[in-house]
């Protein structure tokens, strides 16, 4: 046993959150150097205004989807259909509102939101049914809805972009609560709820045990199927909320483009956050950091004026560096370079 300071240093070094957090800090620093006023916040029309607010607001949908994805991945699964669910949720809500007798009525918006989230839950239950009850491989089971779901969204919107002018609906993605974007508040509440529920109860442990060994978990009395099923339902709910945020942000449903490839961003955020795709150990805080890194990268491309022709290469390069730093072998190499005296004995 070392002293408290040593063990803290050791814990920090081994914590999966340190690297993503450092990467985020470096990215923010780069931005401050390139655009000096990057972190500046001011109040415009009674709400906060600044690049950081943009990152949080535009990153909220991806972060939410990644939150649901974390729990699915923790149970050895994956959900490719969340992007399609985003498109469906936005399409249902906007089509309902646009078709109502009074499209500006708050009640209409609420019914549209409830309908969209209800449908999202049904879609999640479908995924869960395929995976948990029928034992279909998650990547194939959710691929069904990924392909068919966007078609369903097009069916709902008739292939057109549905524009709505409902003040209450516009609040969800573009409005502000206590000076903060509503989307950020909603995402923060959901993150906090999941963190509390999984870390202060046995649920988190059960999820990890199912991810580590489903059979052993089942034999020791864990309702593995129910937990896996619940993961997909929750992931679809997160995607539904994200879909409402995305369509509300532009007060329109675009079935073609809303949530396109967002499932890949979400999986990337989960992996950057240190959750293994093989299931088991997961990190909700890591996922949040991962999603923020991705959004900060996008915002960096826009504010730093990186030409669109090279922006994808830039993003890829940053992500490769983050992954390399996380790789066990590379970390071991870096540690070996340190002076001997500073090294802490590892078990």
């Amino acid at each position: 046993m070392g002293t408290l300071r040593e063990s803290l240093g050791e814990r920090l070094r081994r914590s999966p959150l340190v690297l993503p957090a450092a990467a985020l800090l470096v990215l923010l620093l780069v931005n401050v150097v390139v655009t000096p006023g990057f972190l500046a916040l001011r109040v415009v029309d009674g709400h906060l205004f600044g690049s950081v607010v943009d990152i949080l607001k535009n990153g909220a949908p991806t972060a939410l989807i990644a939150l649901g994805m974390t729990l699915v991945v923790a149970t050895r699964g994956i959900d490719l259909s969340v992007g399609a669910t985003v498109a469906i949720a936005g399409s249902v809500a906007c089509t309902w509102i646009a078709g109502a007798s009074d499209p500006t009525d708050p009640g209409t918006a609420l019914v549209g939101i409830v309908l969209a989230l209800g449908l999202a839950l049904v879609l999640g239950a479908w995924n869960g049914l395929l995976v948990a009850a029928f034992g279909i491989q998650p990547i194939i089971a959710t691929l069904v809805l990924m392909t068919a779901g966007r078609g369903l969204a097009m069916l709902i919107t008739d292939g057109q972009i549905i524009t709505v002018a409902n003040p209450l609906f516009a609040e969800l993605g573009g409005g502000f609560l206590l000076g903060l974007p509503v989307a950020v508040v909603v995402a923060a509440v959901m993150f906090a709820a999941v963190a509390l529920l999984t870390r202060r109860t046995a649920l988190g442990l059960l999820i990890e045990s199912v991810g580590v060994n489903p059979t052993a978990s089942r034999l020791s009395g864990v309702r593995a199927r129910g937990i896996v099923w619940g993961g997909y339902v929750f992931a679809a709910l997160c995607a539904g909320v994200a879909g409402l945020m995305i369509s509300s942000n532009v007060t329109a449903a675009d079935a073609n483009n809303a949530g396109l490839w967002i499932e890949l961003d979400a999986i990337l955020a989960v992996v950057i956050g240190g959750t293994l795709l093989t299931g088991g150990r997961y990190s909700i805080g890591g996922t949040l950091l991962g999603a923020l890194i991705l959004q900060t990268l996008t915002t960096t491309v826009y504010t730093a004026g990186i030409p669109p022709e090279v922006s994808l290469v830039f993003k890829a390069a940053v992500i490769i560096v983050v992954f390399l730093l996380q790789a066990e072998k590379v970390r071991a190499l870096l540690h070996r370079r340190r002076p001997v005296g500073e090294r802490v004995a590892t078990p």
Binding site: S51, D54, N249, V250, D254, T299, Y302, T303, G305, P308
Partner: peptide, 20 residues
């Protein structure tokens, strides 16, 4: 910058431009 011909793309890029 590219906004990919979409509304949310246009909005995100414009938000960033308004700050930078």
């Amino acid at each position: 910058q590219t906004g990919d011909f979409t509304r949310s793309g246009g909005k995100q890029v414009m938000e960033a431009f308004l700050k930078s």
